[in-house]
Amino acid sequence: MPDAVPSILLVEDDPIVRMLMVDVLEEAGYHVLEAESWDAAIAVLQDPAQALALLVTDVGLRDSAERDGLGLAREARQLRGGLPVLVASGFAGLDIPPGTELITKPFSIDALRDKVQGMLA
């Protein structure tokens, strides 16, 4: 029986950036679920039928100043226990929640793929 393909929830509000990241992750062999907002991401995280191996989220989600990617990382850890989280940000000095890793923008396609592969190894 073949190994299951890991599923990644990608949360990015910029459609062009989201499309590029989905392409990179799918080419690396992952199944990618897309969310363009906090609310869409929470709906996936609350769905017990969705098996997730990783959450990848941008820090700067535009749907609410109070509901950024770091808050989503904290919420995901409450909803999904030990779910690893990768946040993408161009800001330095962020207070990264436990169980969360950071990839700094701008990042290369290779850096994204390598970071995700390392987190899921």
Rank of each mutant, 00 (worst) to 15 (best):
Leu61Ser: 13
Pro98Met: 11
Leu55Lys: 00
Ser64Ala: 15
Val24Arg: 06
Leu102Pro: 08
Met21Arg: 13
Asp3Gln: 15
Leu70Gly: 05
Val87Glu: 02
Ala53Phe: 05
Val59Asn: 01
Ser108Gln: 12
Arg67Lys: 15
Leu61Gly: 04
Ala73Met: 05
Pro6Ser: 01
Pro98Cys: 07
Asp58Arg: 05
Glu36Pro: 12
Leu61Met: 04
Leu10Thr: 00
Ile96Asn: 07
Met21Ala: 11
Ile16Trp: 00
Leu33Val: 12
Ala28Ile: 06
Pro2Arg: 15
Asp114Leu: 15
Phe91Gln: 15
Ile96Gly: 11
Asp14Cys: 06
Ile109Cys: 15
Leu79Lys: 02
Met119Tyr: 00
Pro48Ser: 08
Ala40Pro: 04
Arg18Glu: 01
Gln78Asp: 07
Asp68Trp: 03
Leu25Gln: 06
Ala4Tyr: 04
Arg80Asp: 02
Leu55Glu: 02
Ala4Asp: 05
Leu61Phe: 04
Arg62Phe: 01
Leu94Phe: 06
Asp68Thr: 09
Leu10Met: 09
Ala35Val: 08
Gly71Asp: 02
Gly118Phe: 01
Ser64Met: 10
Val17Gly: 06
Ala28Lys: 08
Glu66Trp: 05
Ser7Ala: 13
Pro98Phe: 09
Met19Pro: 01
Ala76Tyr: 05
Ala28Asn: 03
Gln46Lys: 11
Gly60Val: 07
Asp14Phe: 07
Val59Arg: 11
Tyr30Gln: 12
Arg62His: 09
Glu66Val: 09
Leu120Cys: 05
Ile8Thr: 05
Ala65Gly: 14
Ile16Leu: 14
Pro15His: 12
Ser89Trp: 08
Val32Pro: 12
Pro84Ile: 02
Ser89Gly: 09
